[in-house]
């Protein structure tokens, strides 16, 4: 059943409505095996090589936030989509849709941030486009980046590689990006204590693949819809159940307080610099230690495991040792955040 004959904001929220839009309207039109896999990046053969290709658009509001800005996000987000697919990012495109009236100085700052982030991550911005639309037809600036990368030789990643008893690692605290944006937008007073995790996870992804090869079964950056959406997608695609343990999930206390205050489930809140790694049981502890060697992985934790289950649900063992279901979020928990 569809909710409405018009697009709702929730259709862009990364939850159930986004899934419905993709499944019912977009996939049937193109129907090809590469797209149908719905991976973060498409793997395509070019001559003898396999390259990965991805794209993402960024409409975050505010443009500048604690821990990052739309430029940094546009580079890191696309790099992360390549990295979690087991690719080494090499080049990005940059398309700008600018609203008439944007201060040139603001644009300059954003471009400087794109350049700085790309340099740090060792990717080149190799092509691009600029469009200006009338005032009111966009909100200051929207950015699209597409990216390509080479397949890491040892990478073998996919939903079909996930098995029961694999362990689940998250590389740090959850919910930081979503709650930072939310509190900054709404001028809530704890915004100074929160910082978006906006950043690249390519360093961690590359290292764990180099060390553990095909024992790294699957990776995904839990952006819109948060950990709940990512784990539900894994459960949905594999048919396995997932069991996670609340006391092991790292959360910044201020972020938790902000989420509680606004009535959000922290599991539904977006991240922009974290990765969920599904790893074989025997290598889980070692993989965790390697993640923790990185500054952006210092709070990494094993949060649960893939289990055999009839109903393929994601379940959370709570602090008080109760159990409850973690559903795919609806999609409008938060305003525009990425």
């Amino acid at each position: 059943m569809t909710v409405s004959d018009k697009i709702l904001l929730a259709h862009g929220g990364g939850g159930r409505l986004t899934e419905e839009l993709i499944q019912k309207i977009i996939l049937p039109a193109f129907d090809n095996q590469t797209l149908n896999k719905l991976t973060d990046s498409a793997e395509i053969s070019v001559g003898k090589d396999n390259i990965f290709f991805t794209t993402d658009s960024y409409v975050v509001k505010p443009l500048f936030f604690s821990g990052g800005d739309i430029g940094k996000l546009a580079v890191c987000g696309t790099i992360n989509d390549l990295a979690v697919s087991g690719a080494k990012p090499i080049a990005l495109s940059l398309s700008l849709i600018i609203e008439e009236g944007l201060e040139i100085d603001t644009l300059r700052k954003i471009i400087a941030s794109v350049a700085k982030t790309a340099k740090k991550e060792n990717v080149s911005i190799v092509c691009g486009d600029t469009k200006v639309v009338e005032a009111g037809c966009a909100d200051k600036i929207f950015i699209n980046t597409a990216g390509i990368g080479f397949k890491l030789p040892k990478a073998n990643i996919g939903f079909d590689r996930i098995c029961a008893w694999n362990k689940i690692i998250i590389t740090g605290t959850i919910g930081d990006h979503g709650m930072t944006i939310m509190s900054q937008r709404e001028g809530m007073k704890f915004d100074s204590e929160m910082k978006s995790d906006c950043g690249s996870v390519a360093n961690i992804c590359e290292k764990v693949i180099e060390v553990f090869g095909d024992d790294i079964k699957f990776m995904r950056d839990p952006t819109r819809g948060g950990l709940a959406a990512t784990l539900n997608e894994i459960a949905g695609q594999t048919g396995f159940g997932i069991e996670i343990n609340e006391e092991h999930i790292p959360v910044n206390p201020t972020v938790r307080a902000a989420a509680d205050m606004l009535g959000f489930d922290i599991l539904d809140i977006a991240n922009e610099g974290k990765v969920v790694i599904i790893v074989s049981e025997k290598n889980a502890e070692d993989c965790l230690q390697i993640c923790r060697e990185f500054e952006n992985g210092k709070d990494a934790a094993i949060i649960g495991k893939v289990i055999k289950s009839d109903d393929g649900l994601v379940e959370l063992i709570t602090m008080i040792k109760g159990k409850r279901v973690v559903q795919m979020p609806y999609g409008r928990e938060l305003p525009r955040i990425c």
């Binding site: 008080i320 040792k321 109760g322 409850r324």
Partner: peptide
């Protein structure tokens, strides 16, 4: 619900 009390 969220804390799992109902289940516990």
């Amino acid at each position: 619900f969220r804390s799992g009390l109902r289940d516990a």
